[in-house]
Every structure is written in structure tokens, then in C-alpha cells.
Amino acid sequence: MVSEKVCLVTWGHDPLDDRIFFKEALSLGKVYPRVTILATGPRKIQHVGEIKVVSVGRSRLFPWTMWRLCMAARGERAHFYHLHEPQLLPLALFFRLLYRVKIIYDVHEHLPEMIRDFSTRPRKVAALLAAIFSQVDISLARCADAVLVTTGLLESRYARIDSRVVAIYNYPRTDLFDGTHKPPEALRRRYASSRIVLYHGQIGRMRNIPLLIEAVKVVAQRIKDLKLLLMGPVYGNSYRAQLLKLMRDKHVHELVELLDPVPHQQVPDYIALSQVGLVVLPPLSVFTKNIPIKLLEYMACAVPVVGGRLPPIERFVRAANCGILVDPTDSKEIAEAIVRLLEHPQEAKAMGLRGQRAVQVEYNWSRMESRLLAVYRELKEDSC
């Protein structure tokens, strides 16, 4: 065990985020005895196991919240500051100049593409904002001693800067997602008479949720004990109301459940109940670049998948032969894939086991943990 202190800082993520807490912080805690997560949100200090979690509050005024984070980070007097959003990069510049600490910038997603795809502004304005952000982000990333990325495309994007750029894929922890998980008895009883099709993740306008509801109507004509679980945060009460209305209009309101998000460690409970995992994202540019973690979590739990034909999804499904690929804009094709898996359980089981084997051998967090600790070790050696 070494004596250096690590401080992970996030502006917009939950401090118990699956990557920040369950993967990186817990992995770093195996080597570094003092690991702290700083986040915004209701002000409090707590210890989750050996990890200290500090929420500094959040103001509507960006500078005030940034000041709180900055002062809290300064008070930690850490050797490593691990930042999870681009708006924290000015903090990196400030700390490097004054305190000679090591800065790690963790890039979760391809943010310029998210600006283009999800912005409510006119398309040309969104494209201009994305281009400006892209250049500013690359310039500020040079302040970091290391840049961690979650995809090969992001690795290429940041390759032009002088810092270390290392791909730390957001692969699942196989001690949590292992296919042998037994859900609580109450949960098993609740769905004992149903064949479960699961979507877990964000539930928003850009996630193809209406298409999944339409597919359920088709599937229900052949599968009578079907239940579609949509589990995750719903963005906006008006969108929730629209989805509930669509369920009633399609006469599938008894077949579809909107479930609130659960803590990360409880997600395997629901995957373990499922016969099919859905990862049918629309063909937006951002989804052609990001690896959906839900896909790998289904695979880790030996659940066969129905996946949209997008490059990141195709790569894993084809390599492991662990599911069926579909046109992500065609509800009938999605429905046919679900029916095939439910009507051919032996074929579905074989697909699930192949996916699980691929995760156990290659797509697992243990391999990424070694990379993460190597980055920290090299940064420490640089400062000696």
C-alpha cells in the first residue's frame, strides 16, 4: 500500500456512478489508502466502505459551484486529481500551476457528437457549438498528465495531444455481473409467471423507447406471458406521461412497466430475471461511437441480446455471436428477434453463454483495472 492520496472530482455524475465509484474508486482503493470523491449535489460527507464521498452542493450560478468544488479539492491536498467532465479542466490548469499535482482527465463519451445530436438549438448552431467545444476541449486536455477514454475512437481523437492517452473501457465487473446472481425472493415472486424482456438505461426522447413499446404489441400476439421492463431515469414528467399514454393507446399498458432506476449493485437482480436484453439505440452519430455498457452487462449475465445494427453494438454481438442484430428503426424486426429468442430457449441460452464467456475472457473490468493502476503508477514514477 502506498501513501499518495487520490481525489476523483465530478460535476454532473452521481458520486456512486458505476464507472467513478464501483470501478475506478474501488480499484484505486486497493492500492491507495485515501480515496475521495468530490461531487455536486446536496451538501454532505459520507463514507461508503473505505471511500470518502463529499457533496459540496450546487448553485444555479456555475462560478459559485465551481468555487465550492475548487475549495473542496484544494482542502483534500491530494497527489492525484481525477476529473470527469470538461468544465473541470480549468481546475486542472490552476492546480498544476500552483500545487504540482498530477491531473487525470476521464472522457466518458464523445461530447461533440452529443452536442450535435441532443441539442435543442437549430442544427447549424449545434454543429458550430460542437466544433467550438471540440477545439476548446482538446486545448484544455493538454493540461492533463493523462487522458483516459472509453472507446478506440476517443483514443484517436485525443492522440494529437502530448499527454498519455489510455483506453480504459467501461467493461463490467464480473464479481457483480456474473450470471449466477439470485434476485431477492420478492422480486422473483413478482415476475414468476412472466417472460421478461429488459431495457435498462436512460429513458429519453433519443432512446427509441416508443419503438420498443410498438414492438411489444407485435410480440404479445405470439407470446402471452410477456413483460417488458423499462428501467432507468425518465427525463421529464411530460415524457413519462407521453410514454404512459402510448402504452394505453397501444393496449400494452399491462405488459410494460416503467421502473425507477436502482443502485448499480441491484441492476444484476433485474438482468438475472430476464430472458432478453434490449440495446436498440437509434442511428444517431453519438451512438455510432459510444459503447453501450448495458450490452456488456447483459452479456456478463448470460442474457442474449437484441441489438441495433450500429458499429459499437455489431462489433461485440458479431464477435461473440451472443444475440440478434436488427434494424434499430424497424419495430417489426425488433419484435421478430424477441420472439425468436423467446420461442427458441436453447438457442437463446447458447447465445447468452457465448456472450458471458467473451466478457469473462476479454471484456471485463479486471483487465481495465490493471491499465488504470498502471497509469497511476507511471505518473507517480514521473514525479520522483
Rank of each mutant, 00 (worst) to 15 (best):
D117F: 12
S59Q: 07
Q87W: 10
Y105C: 06
P112C: 10
F62I: 11
V147I: 13
L83C: 08
Q87R: 14
F95L: 14
V149C: 01
L97Q: 13
P63H: 08
G75V: 06
D117Q: 11
L98A: 15
I104H: 05
R96H: 09
W64C: 06
I115R: 03
K102V: 05
P86R: 08
L61I: 14
A130D: 11
I45T: 13
E50S: 15
L38T: 03
W67M: 15
D117E: 10
R43L: 06
A144E: 05
S59H: 10
V147T: 07
S119L: 15
P122G: 12
G57V: 02
A127Q: 12
L111I: 14
L38N: 01
S139N: 10
P63V: 05
A130M: 09
V31G: 00
D137C: 07
H47L: 06
R43H: 05
F80V: 07
Y32R: 05
V48P: 01
L140H: 05
L89V: 08
R116V: 15
I104D: 02
V35R: 00
F94K: 03
Y32E: 02
L89T: 03
L69G: 00
Y99V: 02
V107D: 00
A127I: 06
A78M: 09
E76C: 04
P112T: 10
L38V: 03
G41Y: 03
D137F: 13
A131Q: 12
V107K: 00
I45K: 13
R123H: 10
R116K: 13
V56L: 07
T151N: 03
F118E: 14
F95Y: 04
P112V: 15
V53N: 00
K30Y: 01
P42Q: 10
L61H: 13
C70R: 09
Q87E: 15
A92E: 02
L148A: 02
Y32W: 02
L97T: 08
A126W: 06
R100T: 06
V56Y: 00
V31T: 14
Q135C: 09
R34W: 06
V101H: 06
L89D: 04
F133T: 11
R116C: 08
P86T: 14
